[in-house]
Simulated assay, not measured.
Amino acid sequence: MLILLPPSEGKTPASGGAAVDLSALSFPTLEIARKQVMESLAEVSGRDDALEALGVGASLAHDVERNRRLHAEPAAPAHRVYSGVLYEALGYASLTAAQRRKADASIVVVSALWGAVGFSDLVPAYRLSMSTALPGLGRLASFWKPLLTEALADRASEGLVVDCRSSTYAAAYAPPVSRTVTVDALTERNGKRTVVSHFAKHHRGEFVRHLLTRKGRMPGTPQALLTAARERWNAELHEGTGKKPPSLVLVLEG
């Protein structure tokens, strides 16, 4: 199984340790592109209009300043650096050793800076969104899309792809429709359903944790994924189209 996650907006900097080694990251064919993004990001982050260019407020000026020295910043495992709502719900630190190995083997984070990284890859904290356009590279989703299609081809062919990304990061890579299921959440109250927005990240994190901690094999088909989801949630599997994969919907009580 391949589980695709978005990065978190908030990131926890490593307290110490060696800097990132680009040659040691997963998907080594992306190394040159990663250097290009790092260099362009460092240049933009040193400009007078850096905050505006990166779409962030003054409270994140320190994060933007860090972008200028990512080659020297200490690195930590991706599952520790990414520390937002989804990752809190996933709770990597509280998994057993066997469950952590399963997470490391199955989870890939699609990133504006790295393209894609494994869950245990060592990376520094940074500030960059996939919707950003960088000098010489353009919109990062467009920049990464052909590169990720090639780099992830083998991983995406190994089994079911469970796509827990937001639309911003989904734009950078489209896994094979025939092998993919997206994960969404809806709230139902008095027969009326509404889309869960911010808290969808939390529920996706809980769902990934359930896949990692439940007994038995990882689901290999959309129907098996639905069966796994129904062990804990009221869930539905919505059919896809020729261009859109099926969607697993967690239906939550309002």
Rank of each mutant, 00 (worst) to 15 (best):
S120Q: 13
K102F: 13
S26M: 10
A19V: 07
L70A: 08
S131Y: 12
P219S: 11
K243V: 13
A229S: 09
L30N: 09
P7R: 05
P146F: 09
R34P: 05
G191H: 10
H62G: 02
R66L: 14
R66N: 11
T149H: 07
L30C: 07
D104G: 05
R127C: 02
Q99P: 11
T213I: 11
K192R: 00
T180L: 06
V251T: 04
A112F: 15
R80I: 03
P6R: 13
S106I: 14
V195R: 13
R101N: 10
V251Q: 07
F207V: 04
G84T: 01
L41Q: 07
S45K: 00
W114G: 07
P146H: 05
V251A: 03
L54I: 09
S45I: 01
P222M: 00
L4F: 14
P124E: 05
E9G: 02
E39M: 03
G136W: 09
L51M: 01
A89K: 15
S120H: 10
G10Q: 03
E31L: 04
L134W: 08
L148R: 06
M38T: 02
A235V: 10
V20Y: 12
I32E: 15
R209I: 01
R68A: 08
S94A: 14
A53G: 01
S106A: 15
V85E: 09
S142Y: 08
E150C: 04
T96P: 14
L250D: 08
L225K: 05
R189S: 01
Y126S: 01
A58L: 05
E88W: 06
A174M: 12
Y82L: 00
D63K: 10
R217I: 12
T227C: 07
T149R: 01
V161Q: 06
C164V: 11
I3S: 13
A153M: 05
L128Y: 14
S83D: 15
R69C: 07
V108C: 15
N234V: 07
L70G: 14
V20K: 02
G191E: 04
A235M: 03
L86A: 14
S15N: 00
N234I: 01
A24F: 11
P28M: 05
L113H: 13
L22C: 06
S26I: 13
H203D: 02
L148N: 07
T227D: 15
L134M: 08
L134S: 07
A125H: 08
P219N: 09
D104Y: 08
S15H: 01
R34T: 01
E150S: 12
